[in-house]
């Protein structure tokens, strides 16, 4: 009888611990998702980056060219950087850095940022007026 009670207690403990662990993981993930969404909503330009990453440097350089200061989250310099990266991956389907957000919308990675800059759409999105010429306004 005592053995059965002990077994039941043991099993209950395991189930409870599993539930607590699952809840902690889910809660942790939820808090990271909230952090990402809150950060993206609070700033015009957000770059999720890693300080050593050449592609991140390239994305930052684009905004320097446009004389804009992005809000940068350096994932390698945060304790929870790895979890934030996992959360970003779940939200946007990409694990790589940088990931750039403009006015709350996901622009993409380094290549997407450079492409948007070179095509002029990035300046347009940010409301920057650029001088235009009609040099290209003819058939090739």
């Amino acid at each position: 009888m005592a053995a059965a009670a002990a077994n039941l207690f043991g099993a209950t403990t395991i189930v409870l611990l599993s539930l607590i662990y699952s809840y902690t993981v889910i809660a942790g993930a939820a808090s990271k998702e909230a952090f990402v969404k809150k950060t993206v909503a609070a700033h015009d330009i957000v770059i999720f980056s890693k300080s050593y990453c050449p592609y991140c440097r390239r994305a930052k350089a684009v905004f320097s060219e446009l004389k804009k200061v992005p809000y940068v989250v350096e994932l390698d310099q945060r304790e929870d950087g790895s979890e934030i990266q996992d959360t970003l991956s779940a939200i946007i389907g990409r694990r790589t850095v940088p990931q750039v957000f403009i006015h709350g919308k996901h622009l993409g990675g380094s290549d997407d940022t450079v492409e948007a800059y070179e095509s002029g759409t990035l300046a347009k999105t940010l409301g920057i007026t650029t001088a235009t010429t009609n040099d290209d306004d003819h058939d090739l």
């Binding site: 050593y52 990453c53 050449p54 790895s82 694990r95 790589t96």
Partner: peptide, 28 residues
């Protein structure tokens, strides 16, 4: 900062991005 010392720096960055993209955790 990047893996594959001795290879072209630009390609090292590409490999690094791909490793990370495939879910490998990098500790440079």
């Amino acid at each position: 900062d990047l893996p594959l010392r001795g290879f072209d720096d630009e390609m090292r960055a590409v490999v690094s991005r791909n490793l990370e993209g495939r879910g490998i955790k990098l500790h440079p």
